[in-house]
Design a protein around this nucleic acid. Structure first.
Lengths: 225, 225
DNA sequence: CGCATGATTGAACCAGCTCAACCTTAGTGG
DNA sequence: CCACTAAGGTTGAGCTGGTTCAATCATGCG
């Protein structure tokens, strides 16, 4: 199994608390992180102090391998919750990928799926209103967690404050709050401190213009991947 | 040379006109495209008919290789100008990558840089106002073209209509127009039909909160890439 | 010359922001 | 077990960047 061979690499286990950094902007990375439990977030800061969250990670995600191949980190990676993390030196992982193409291709496909998520985020932030953005994000996270066996699409963890939700969606915490209240009143979905309950999945997906196709990692193309 | 070995693959040359599709949403890709001349754009359509451009390509870009490894295209790729395109079957390219790790790694690094551009787009659209968004995009395209020897950062081609500029930046054509006029009056930059003249690069970069670091492909990390 | 596409401008409107106050909740220390 | 506190949620009021709609102007092209 690919996963087993990654886990067999030299690595160290760490326990972090919410808010801890896995990677800081500008750092030269020497290792990457496999999130065993908990949630993480990648973000960039702007000169005026505002923040944009550019991606979310759930347990099982190999958080920053791709980026660790670049000379400098282009963003921060920070934990949203206490978490257990496996820290894997980049060198051995690259070596493993060279010797086992199947591993390389699995990791690569993983990166492709991530790119598809990026695309969706751009569309979401660029062209949808607040309600649709929130709905789309809820759908994405619901499906991703269902895929790895954490909760179901109708009830799953999402430990983001309204402020952080705003930072992920290009919105203000105040506005997120109002829209969340509205979505509750509409019986679409309900967000508590750390989780989401979806009352009507089909309607939520329609509101968010969500199609989960792009999250399916098993799609294989011509190239033999 | 890596580039030479890619060019030595079986491939067919095509000449397209502006607006032609290289890839359509939902298609099953069997080949990828190297843009020899001209400009291309990747986009997604929304149910209400609006469009979000999620990336721009200039001559020299291997437009959609990464995505051709997925089962179905997740977006459209369309030409902005007449263009010469090399169409390369995916199979042989994957084979080449397996037999020549250096090629694989070059292509991979290329994909990483693209991911960095994605990140910046999310930040741009999510957290910057219209003037900064436009400034940032101008800087990005200017540097990218300078890198490959097409024009200079102070004067380069950018054959996007104001409508298309809006679609790339999450704005309206009308608003793009007004902001462009303002930027001209401020002697920041001037956009004609098909090109951009930058009057004051430093100020433009400051307005767009632009740092070109992320576009540098030569950055190499620990992994030997 | 005539047409089509894109640029420009004005006016009214509104989704989302800002500012500021107040409320709730979950810890924490005693 | 309770008082205290800090972080985050909720709400109101006023404002504004960007949108919408619609008309007019420029331009390139057959």
């Amino acid at each position: 199994m690919d996963a087993a061979s990654v886990l067999a690499l030299p690595s160290t286990r760490h326990v972090f608390t919410a808010g801890d950094y896995l990677v800081r902007y500008g750092e030269i990375p020497t290792s990457c992180h496999l999130l065993l439990t908990g949630f993480a977030q990648r973000n960039k800061l702007l000169p005026d102090g505002s923040r944009q969250i550019i991606g979310l990670h759930i347990a099982g995600d190999l958080v920053d391998f791709q980026y660790s191949l670049l000379g400098r980190a282009t963003h921060n990676v920070q934990l949203l919750t206490p978490a257990k993390v496996l820290e894997i030196p980049v060198g051995p992982l690259v070596h493993l990928m060279r010797s086992r193409p199947a591993v390389a291709e699995a990791i690569w496909r993983n990166g492709l799926t991530e790119a598809c998520v990026f695309e969706e985020w751009i569309v979401n932030i660029g062209r949808r209103d607040a309600r649709s953005r929130i709905a789309h994000l809820f759908c994405e996270i619901g499906i991703r967690q269902e895929q790895v066996g954490l909760g179901s699409r109708s009830h799953f963890d999402l430990p983001l404050s309204q402020e952080q939700l705003g930072d992920a969606l290009g919105l203000t915490a105040v506005h997120v709050n109002r829209v969340l209240r509205r979505m509750e009143a509409e019986k679409l979905a309900w967000k508590s401190r750390r989780s989401v309950k979806v009352f009507d999945w089909d309607r939520l997906a329609a509101v968010g213009d969500f199609s989960g196709d792009y999250l399916d990692q098993r799609r294989a193309g011509q190239g033999g991947l």
